[in-house]
């Protein structure tokens, strides 16, 4: 009878541990990416002034987007202020031509909301091609606000014809 009780207690403990772990997992998901702004391009980049000419080979976005790494969990902010993370990037084409490329770059460092000087961002400062496969973009530590990013289109040509070209660039944050 005592053995049965011990086993039963052990089962309860395991369950309690599991629930705690799941709770931790759920709490750990509070780190999130926020993106402000839109990727817009000057329409003049897609016009031709001199007959016979092609578009410029690459066009930078005329606006800057801002990425913020934030947490809406007070416990996480207080007890895990130096959490490491990394951002990966991929694209999902809506209407696109394979000869055209989207490139992305981190053009600044943003700032720490908490004024935590150990918070920082690394890498991503050279344009890199965004493909359908997720690839590493940049990494950092802690909560960082308004990290500026820019896009560049390359390989664009009048040869691709008239039409609307659209792709969705997916930024994903992971624990690092």
């Amino acid at each position: 009878m005592k053995v049965y009780k011990t086993k039963f207690l052990l089962e309860k403990l395991v369950f309690a541990g599991c629930l705690l772990l799941i709770g931790f997992v759920v709490k750990a998901q509070e780190l999130e990416l926020q993106v402000e702004g839109m990727a817009t391009f000057d329409a003049a980049s897609f016009s031709i002034e001199n007959a016979g000419a092609d578009f410029n080979a690459s066009v930078e976005s005329e606006s800057t987007l801002f990425v913020t790494v934030d947490s809406n969990d007070a416990w996480d902010k207080t007890n895990n202020p130096n959490r490491k993370w990394k951002v990966e990037v991929r694209k999902e084409d809506v209407s696109w031509d394979d000869a055209m490329q989207v490139e992305i770059v981190r053009s600044g460092n943003g700032y720490s909301k908490e004024n935590n000087k150990s918070n920082h961002v690394n890498d991503g400062q050279n344009y890199q091609v965004v493909s359908a496969n997720s690839s590493y973009f940049f990494r950092g530590k802690g909560l960082i606000s308004e990290i500026p990013i820019q896009f560049r289109l390359s390989g664009i040509s009048i040869v691709h014809g008239a039409g609307d070209f659209e792709t969705n660039v997916m930024l994903t944050i992971y624990d690092d």
């Binding site: 998901q29 993106v35 839109m38 897609f46 066009v59 993370w85 008239a162 609307d164 930024l171 994903t172």
Partner: peptide, 15 residues
């Protein structure tokens, strides 16, 4: 647990 969150940025232009 490892993938926390993602956001989409729409990139679009018209020729």
């Amino acid at each position: 647990f490892s993938q926390l969150n993602d956001k989409a940025v729409n990139v679009r232009f018209t020729v």
